[in-house]
């Protein structure tokens, strides 16, 4: 009986002993990946600023990968054939040298192998996104455009009328004109005050007394957005605090995004299924902006970065679904 137990135990442990060490390395690799690579890469989630790293260990040699991860800048400068081709493919955004040790690179590769291996069948390569047609203009954007074009037309007409009046020169009655100016001043002031009173209550700032139904923490960094249920305030939190790969939000609930940045200023711009801006706030290092939205329309929402943040700015995006 004792023998049997010992043999069983051995059967269980022996195959796992080296695997455990590998798993530990892969786990350190996972944290490193979240902190340093996930802003540009996924493993099996499709290309982002840089290529999808799923299967990287199959398409490249171990030696090449180790070197590229530790000194991509040198390899690109030396015109390594594969590296140069990748740079061309990825909008010439150059992968930064992140100052990694060789041991860290090995841990990262272990993580990429592990995740890439288990998800191999799950994620088919994404097709390149085809351009979508222009959507219909939503309100209030359509109103803004209409008001602007209308007032501009009036401005141009008035100037044109005055310009053409010089064809029939005549002395003008300045007193009368000053009377007219008084009326103009009164009207303009009234319009300004009325518009202020009408539009100021529409300001997007959070009202403390209203409790949000759902709070989502957002950490922006060059060049992605990280969603989580707990606050992420520094790069060290990444990989320790669980993040959401996929975010679903209930329709019509009051959702509060608590938005911050881990590096430079970014913008958190929420685009609805009509692909137009519904709300936005800035993501600022050292501060948390609370953006409250209640989204009625179900569908896929996109988030684009709305503050210039260097080379990957236009590729910095995320999204969520409203159900």
């Amino acid at each position: 009986m004792r023998y049997l137990a010992a043999v069983l135990l051995l059967c269980v442990l022996v195959p796992f002993a080296p695997a455990r060490a590998e798993n530990e390395a892969a786990d350190r690799g996972r944290i490193l990946f979240e902190q340093k690579c996930a802003s540009c890469h996924t493993i099996g989630g499709g290309a982002r600023v840089g290529p999808d790293l799923q299967g990287a260990h199959q398409r490249r040699s171990e030696e090449w990968l180790l070197r590229f991860v530790t000194e991509p800048d040198r390899m690109i400068a030396e015109k390594d054939e594969i590296a140069v081709r990748l740079v061309e493919q990825f909008n010439r955004i150059v992968m930064p040298n992140l100052g990694l040790q060789a041991s860290e690179a090995r841990e990262l590769l272990a993580h990429i192998k592990l995740v890439g291996g288990t998800q191999a069948a799950a994620a088919p390569p994404q097709p390149a996104a085809a351009p979508l047609p222009r959507p219909d203009l939503i309100a209030p954007q359509s109103i803004v455009l209409g008001v602007f074009l209308f007032v501009s037309a009036i401005i141009v007409l008035v100037f044109a009328w005055v310009g053409f009046s010089t064809r029939q020169p005549e002395e003008v009655n300045v007193k009368k004109a000053y009377g007219f100016r008084k009326a103009l001043f009164a009207t303009a002031s009234a319009v300004v005050v009325a518009t202020l009173v009408m539009t100021m209550p529409g300001a997007p700032y959070a009202v403390a007394s209203l409790k949000a139904d759902r709070i989502v923490y957002v950490a922006a960094r060059q060049f992605d957005f990280v969603f989580s249920d707990e606050p992420i305030t520094s790069a060290a939190d990444l990989g320790r605090i669980p993040t959401m790969r996929h975010l679903d939000l209930p329709a019509n609930a009051l959702v509060e995004f608590r938005v911050t940045s881990l590096d430079v200023n970014h913008g958190f711009g929420v685009y609805g299924p009509e692909r137009q801006l519904l709300a936005q706030t800035q993501a600022m290092p050292g501060y948390v902006n609370r953006l409250r939205v209640s989204l009625a329309q179900p569908g896929h929402y996109k988030v684009f970065c709305l503050e210039y943040c260097a080379a990957g700015h236009h590729a910095m995006q995320s999204g969520f679904d409203v159900k």
Binding site: N91, A129, A130, P131, L132, P133, R134, P135, L137, Q141, S142, V144, L145, F148, G269, Y271, R275, Q276, L277, K302, F304, C305, L306, Y308, H313, H314, A315, Q317
Partner: peptide, 25 residues
């Protein structure tokens, strides 16, 4: 520029994503 702005096309994008391809036009 005004039309793009009304259609929510962001400023300072070197190229436009598929969802905002009309910015390119």
């Amino acid at each position: 520029f005004y039309l793009s702005g009304a259609y929510s096309v962001p400023r300072r994008f070197a190229t436009y994503p598929a969802e905002l391809a009309h910015g390119g036009a």
